[in-house]
């Protein structure tokens, strides 16, 4: 009897949380699309999400490109298919590695800082103060962050694509002794726009998820410093999980045969 009640409670809590997140999402979308727009806030978020995330994204995608070249080479050598390295690097980086790596890195960096900042503003009543000063916190705080996530992540991923391919190229040519021209020609002949496009769509969705979960957890945090800590953890964990889930779903949508 206790057990059934427990299951019931878990279910109710789950649907309550899902409903709350759903309503929050709709409110966020609505306030992103309706004036007033706070361009100064938006610009500073572009800087925060886009520009300052560049180093970590650049570093991780470059190394990801390098390691995939190395792994493919040693792996494919078993079936004497080393020639496929350039293509595998292309596919892996544009479709998967750049978006997922960038997404997870930005989730750790930006999702956490959004949750911490909004959480602190919540527990120190700064969000209430905004409302009393006739400023909608959804429009002033959340919309700029979500729009920045949505637009900046694809740009980061595009840069990550280039760097990842370069990383693979460097390993291929200087370590694995491929002929430079034929490596490039191989890549060139093989590449299709859909690979990059699917990666950028993923990036946009991931950016939205990161900002949404960061803001959601921060906005509804309570209970002082500890609450802010919990919000930060939840923001990073939930956005990372959602990124991996949506990564699968979007791949399925794009490449189902």
């Amino acid at each position: 009897m206790e057990f059934i009640r427990l299951i019931g409670r878990v279910f109710i809590n789950f649907f309550e949380a899902a409903g709350r997140l759903g309503i929050f999402t709709l409110k966020v979308i609505y306030s992103c699309l309706t004036p007033p727009f706070y361009f100064k806030q938006l610009f500073s978020q572009f800087l925060e999400v886009g520009f300052y995330s560049l180093p970590v994204v650049a570093l991780t995608t470059t190394f990801a490109g390098m390691v995939i070249a190395l792994q493919t080479y040693t792996g494919f050598a078993r079936v004497s298919a080393e020639g496929a390295v350039s293509m595998v690097v292309w596919i892996a980086v544009t479709r998967e590695l750049a978006p997922v790596m960038a997404g997870l890195m930005v989730a750790g960096r930006i999702g956490a800082s959004m949750a911490a900042e909004l959480g602190t503003m919540r527990v120190t009543e700064q969000i209430d103060a905004l409302t009393t000063l006739s400023t909608d916190p959804f429009k002033y705080l959340i919309s700029p962050r979500v729009i920045a996530g949505l637009l900046m992540l694809p740009i980061l991923v595009l840069i990550g694509d280039v760097l990842g391919i370069c990383g693979g190229y460097l390993i291929g040519v200087y370590k694995l002794d491929f002929n430079a021209t034929s490596y490039l020609v191989n890549t060139w002949n093989f590449m299709k726009p859909i690979d990059v496009i699917s990666g950028l769509v993923k990036a946009g969705v991931f950016g939205f998820i990161i900002a949404l979960m960061g803001c959601y957890n921060g906005f509804y945090s309570k209970g002082g410093a500890q609450g802010v800590g919990t919000a930060t953890t939840n923001a990073v964990v939930s956005s990372s999980i959602l990124i991996l889930v949506f990564n699968y779903i979007i791949t399925e949508i794009f490449f189902r045969t």
């Binding site: 120190t124 009543e125 700064q126 209430d128 103060a129 409302t131 009393t132 000063l133 006739s134």
Partner: peptide
Amino acid sequence: ERINKQIGMLFQGAALFD
């Protein structure tokens, strides 16, 4: 919002935007 424009509030912890 129109009503809130004619209300001022001093919060317990001042709630200044840091």
